[in-house]
Design a protein around this nucleic acid. Structure first.
Length: 478
RNA sequence: GGGUAACUAGCUCAAUGGUAGAGCAUCGGACUCUUAAUCCGUUGGUUCAGGGUUCGAGUCCCUGGUCACCCA
């Protein structure tokens, strides 16, 4: 005791939750002569003259400490007035190690009957009000460590996030998928339509981009002979920030040779349902007051059907963009800027359908114009074999039979490059090396990408993406 | 990008244009079964920043900042 406010170690025998469950049915007033050692942060202090109650929190939960003057003096005979020191030197927020036995107090609170204690770390800053806690959103995100200390549900969210990512990996590995890491720093940011972050390598004196997708490298691996690959990792998009968008977020992309988009829809729903069941123990998920039912199979509907269902517009009947624009105007939609029929269809879909897709729904058969990496539909001209998964009106996953024809792929890239040259900041350039890979031959392959953060939001009932990212990007405070 | 609202003590919040406050936390004291312990006392402020109106601004006006929500 005394003098060393920052200790080196404390041998812990139990965590609070273990004790709470192990002695859950101990009767009030009963004691158990089991010696335990625990450690944690002092959350609340209730101090009397010769008796004190602390609430101690460790990673798993909380337990009360029963601090009796006589017991502590008996347990720490070399110390001088140890109980007095305990009262004077400890504060809310300090990390304390204790050894003692188990006792449920007469008032019924399971406690550690402390014989010895040591201040392991002194806290110099006061914790937020124990009753009101920390509610200021900005402070919660900027000082997540404080948020984690005082809001147990925040710890639960990140614990659950870890279970989800572990569950996804376990599921895919069981299906013989191999996780391979691909470059974050790239000379050309491709694989998606998004503005990239630009950075610079000093010794090579080279402009580099942070990846906006993992797609093109994973497909190179498929060319190389890995039939089932995936990568779960951070990607970066230099776009706006909202409750659904953080500039860096986590995606998983998985590629499976010899499968098509139908197979991948099945894999995706089974993967998500399995992980949900593992983590929540149910497929009925409450999200912000709405029950989302993840029981498979999920609804599959083509974009054409859905648009017709919601708006009455039958895009299979239109022969030109002009016709579509006129018809859309009649229902109050301005599509003047749409260059092609496919763009117009997508525009109507985004404006009128997306938000209504509350229950999990695979929207299929997208226009080729907005899908530069997807294989043409085997029976519908102008469309590709693609799906997007919507849950709670949010795009949560995206997959397609991969375009494997290098000539077609070059033409699609060139269209993109033309848009880029015309000033479209989200268009991608021609990735010559990727085309070379395709020229060596890529087996028929299906790929899928999923937004991990959005899936975690769903399973943790989090309204904002910032609630599932430990340290979300915020503007600098000053 | 547009709109709305918030910003005051460490935390949660008050304060008709007229002396900046409360609870908890801090600090000191009393107290051997508390659960937001209780009781007595104490400390604590660039009212987000900068300008303006006014005898006087936390309050009204303008500009900016951050966060939140809604819309695009």
């Amino acid at each position: 005791m005394g003098g060393v406010p920052y200790a080196y170690e404390w041998r812990v025998s139990h965590h609070t939750q273990e004790l709470q469950s192990q002695f859950g049915d101990l009767a009030a007033g009963e004691e158990v002569d089991l010696s335990v050692a625990i450690a944690g942060r002092i959350l609340i202090r209730r101090v009397f003259g010769k008796l004190a109650f602390f609430t101690l929190q460790d990673e798993t939960g909380v337990i009360q400490l029963y601090l009796d003057k006589k017991a502590i003096e008996a347990g720490m005979p070399e110390a001088e007035n140890p109980f007095q020191q305990l009262k004077q030197l400890t504060d809310i927020g300090d990390i304390l190690g204790v050894r003692g036995t188990i006792k449920r107090t007469e008032k019924g609170e399971l406690s550690v009957y402390v014989q010895q204690f040591q201040i392991l770390t002194k806290s110099l800053l006061p914790l937020p009000d124990k009753w009101h806690g920390l509610t200021d959103t900005e402070k919660r995100y900027r000082q997540r460590y404080v948020d984690l200390i005082v809001n147990p549900e925040v710890r639960q969210t990140f614990r659950r996030r870890a279970q989800i990512t572990a569950g996804i990996r376990r599921y895919l590995e069981k299906l013989d998928f191999l996780e391979i890491e691909t470059p974050v720093l790239q000379t050309e940011a491709g694989g998606a339509e998004a503005r990239p972050f630009i950075t610079h390598h000093n010794t090579l004196d080279m402009q580099l981009y942070l990846r906006i997708a993992t797609e093109l490298h994973l497909k190179r691996l498929v060319v190389g002979g890995f039939e089932r690959v995936f990568e779960m990792g951070r990607i970066f998009r230099n776009e706006g920030i909202s409750t659904r968008h953080n500039p860096e977020f986590t995606s998983i992309e998985a590629y499976m040779a010899y499968g098509d988009y139908m197979a991948m829809m099945e894999l995706t729903e089974n993967l998500m349902a399995t992980v949900t069941e593992e983590v929540l123990g149910t497929l009925e998920v409450d999200y912000q007051g709405t029950t989302i039912n993840l029981t498979t199979p999920w609804r599959r509907v083509t974009m054409h059907e859905l648009v017709k269902e919601e708006t009455g517009l039958d895009f299979t009947k239109f022969t030109s963009v002009a016709e579509a624009i006129t018809a859309a105007a009649a229902i109050g939609l301005d599509l003047e800027d749409c260059p092609t029929l496919g763009n117009a269809l997508n525009e109507v879909f985004e404006a009128r359908c997306e938000a209504k897709l509350t229950q999990p729904t695979f929207v299929t058969d997208y226009p080729v114009e907005i899908s530069p990496l997807a294989k043409p539909h085997r029976s519908k001209t102008g469309l590709v074999e693609r799906f997007e998964l919507f849950i709670v009106g949010r795009e949560t996953a995206n997959g397609f039979s991969e375009l494997t024809d290098p000539i077609d792929q070059r033409a699609r890239f060139e269209l993109q490059a033309a848009k880029k040259a015309a000033g479209d900041l989200e268009a991608q350039g021609v990735d010559e090396d990727f085309l070379t890979a395709l020229e060596y031959g890529m087996p028929p392959t299906v790929g899928m990408g999923m937004g991990i953060d959005r899936f975690v939001m769903l399973l943790t009932n989090s309204p904002s993406i910032r609630d599932v990212i430990a340290f979300p990007l915020l503007k600098s405070a000053d």
